[in-house]
Amino acid sequence: MRIRALVIRIIRQFLRDKRTLGMMVIAPIFILTLMSLVFSGSHYEPVIGVINIDEEIVMNFEEQNAVVKQYEKEEELIEALQNKEIDGYLQLGISPKITLEGSDPTVNQAVFQTIKMVLGGQEGGTKPEVTYYYGAEDMGTFDNIGPFLIGFFVFFFVFLIAGVSFLRERTSGTLEKLLSTPLRRWEIVVGYVLGFGMFTTIQSAIIVWFSIHVLDMMMFGSIGLVMLVTLVLSITALTLGTLLSAFARNELQIIQFIPIVIVPQVFFSGLFNIDVMDPWLRSIGVVMPLTYGGEAMRDIMIRGKGLEDIAGYLMILLAFSILFMLLNSLALKKHRKL
């Protein structure tokens, strides 16, 4: 009988919390949809740069579903590679030379396979010489996604913890108490960023150090720079978490933000190759902080780029943080108008 009473009570609670009920259905559908969009994308079409090549060979490439771009000089090829206009280039000579962009093993493979097919039909198996512009031949998938994963996990946990602790401030009444003092709303928001910032600095440093020295991730750039990107990314997560806690009534509702806010970032910010998706799908990544964090991390760790190359990404992440802080300060108006 007591069990029955319990069951009835739980059912009633669920019925009162329509949102949690909705999440049980909508969240899995949402994630499954995302996954189907990501994984049903068509086969990757490599873009290959060439210099003054026979029409016949170009035709052969097109038969292999590859895109061929013609250039005049080798300098142009390198520039195109750096700007990600091409995935690799082919130079024909006594022995053919392939240069791969190198940061994504899947793309490397696609370029290499296509060229091999085309050349195989041409001159009966001269072994091409392969060089990697970035990365190296022994680069594994983990080396490619690792920099992104560092950013992702830092983002995820900072988001959760910051969200829950700011929520506790609301539910315990301490936020109200704070607002009954002359404390400004923005002071509360900034205070949180700074207080948490201390811990996220330490957290970023430890995670980055561990990934590079213990997990032995591929690392061509400066470790200090990786820590900086991680820290800036975690500030973005912190400001987003505290902002969204305004829209949650309890811890459970914070957790419900994971499939809405965190999971899509896994799919659209660069963990998977988004080049195979429809252009409108690709553009979703533009609004996601992890797109910029992940790309900056890859630039440093795999491509060995410096501060001036990733400064733009850092600026965007900081802009996100400032936006979230402003919005949070506004959200606090719900409690006190001033």
Binding site: S172, G173, T174, E176, K177, S180, T181, P182, R184, R336, K337, L338
Partner: peptide
């Protein structure tokens, strides 16, 4: 109300204890 000048001169004790446990 609300006014920052006055908030400094009022003390509020809410029904919930509003303490950091």
């Amino acid at each position: 109300m609300p006014s920052f000048a006055v908030l400094n001169k009022t003390g509020f004790m809410s029904q919930s204890d509003a303490l950091y446990g």
